[in-house]
């Protein structure tokens, strides 16, 4: 009985998906590639906004060209900024490797101004304002640069719609993707452009290609295992980044995501960095 219900449910979902795949009229009607690229980014942002705050656990698995691996575990908290003119507040607490356990990185994201960023070093209890100019450097030795993990505010890029094509990949093989190029407008980016695949059903990122300062294809990110939280927000459980130059790759897995947990500004206050668990 249970099996039948589940089967029916999945059939309905399976049938329902193509019906929902209507591209919003404003995007479908737009013919200018620059305007269309921006509309797609805005649609994607709108669908991912309004969750208020989040608390996530994540695990990073770093693999080098010889197959040696290293693991990092972290927790992230984000407070959405209700003011559309400014960015979100977020913090990352490191749990592993053990020598950085308890280290906290606090970020106030801005659109085009450099983000405000602080580091809390638990061994000497120092709260240190750090430069956020390090956009292209590797985050914790991984294939993710700081800018790859930063809050991706719409205003940080200019856009250009390239084409529509099948998304590819096992999960969204049936879907069509908008392929949009985005060009960083903030200073010190390590990229000339990123090419983003956004599906036309849920408007979520499925794949990103990163092009370095010489415009060579440097890295590819695949975003998979999306699931629905609070009946409204699609969140991926897995990010897979490959560096084509070095052959190294990093897998970022969200082991837990909670939305709307009741965080407030005081939880993101520099003065309280020493009290964060």
């Amino acid at each position: 009985m249970l099996t039948r219900t589940l089967l029916t449910a999945s059939l309905i979902v399976g049938l329902a998906a193509p019906v929902m795949a209507e591209i919003p009229a404003n995007i479908a009607a737009e013919s200018d590639p620059v305007a269309k690229g921006l509309l797609i980014a805005q649609e994607s942002d709108a669908r991912n906004s309004g969750y208020v705050d989040s608390e996530s656990d994540m695990k990073m698995l770093l693999t080098n060209q010889h197959g040696d691996t290293a693991e990092r575990t972290m927790r992230q908290r984000v407070l959405e900024n209700p003011d559309p003119a400014d960015g979100d507040k977020s913090l990352i607490v490191f749990d592993n490797p053990r020598d950085v356990k308890g280290t906290v990185m606090l970020t106030y994201a801005h659109h085009l101004d450099p983000d405000d960023q602080w580091l809390y070093l638990p061994s000497i209890k120092k709260k240190k304002r750090i430069s956020s100019a390090n956009k292209s450097g590797p985050f914790m030795g991984s294939e993710f640069a700081y800018e790859d993990l930063a809050s991706s505010e719409i205003q940080k890029y200019s856009y250009k719609f390239l084409r529509d094509e099948p998304c590819g990949g096992a999960e969204v093989a049936e879907r069509t993707c908008h392929v949009v190029a985005r060009y960083p407008l903030y200073e010190r980016s390590g990229y000339t452009k990123q090419v983003v695949w956004i599906d036309t059903v849920d408007y979520q990122q499925r794949k990103v290609e990163f092009y370095d300062r010489q415009d060579a294809h440097l890295k590819t990110l695949k975003v998979t295992e999306y699931y629905l939280i609070n009946d409204r927000f699609w969140r991926p459980a897995r990010f897979y980044m490959v560096n084509h130059k070095t052959g190294k790759h990093t897998e970022l897995v969200w082991t837990s995501i909670k939305l709307g947990v009741g965080l407030n500004d005081a939880d993101f206050n520099k003065s309280r960095l020493g009290s964060i668990r």
Partner: peptide, 12 residues
């Protein structure tokens, strides 16, 4: 003052 990615490496 920090120079990021010196000599085309990941080093600062």
């Amino acid at each position: 003052y920090t120079l990021y990615g010196v000599l085309d490496s990941d080093a600062d």
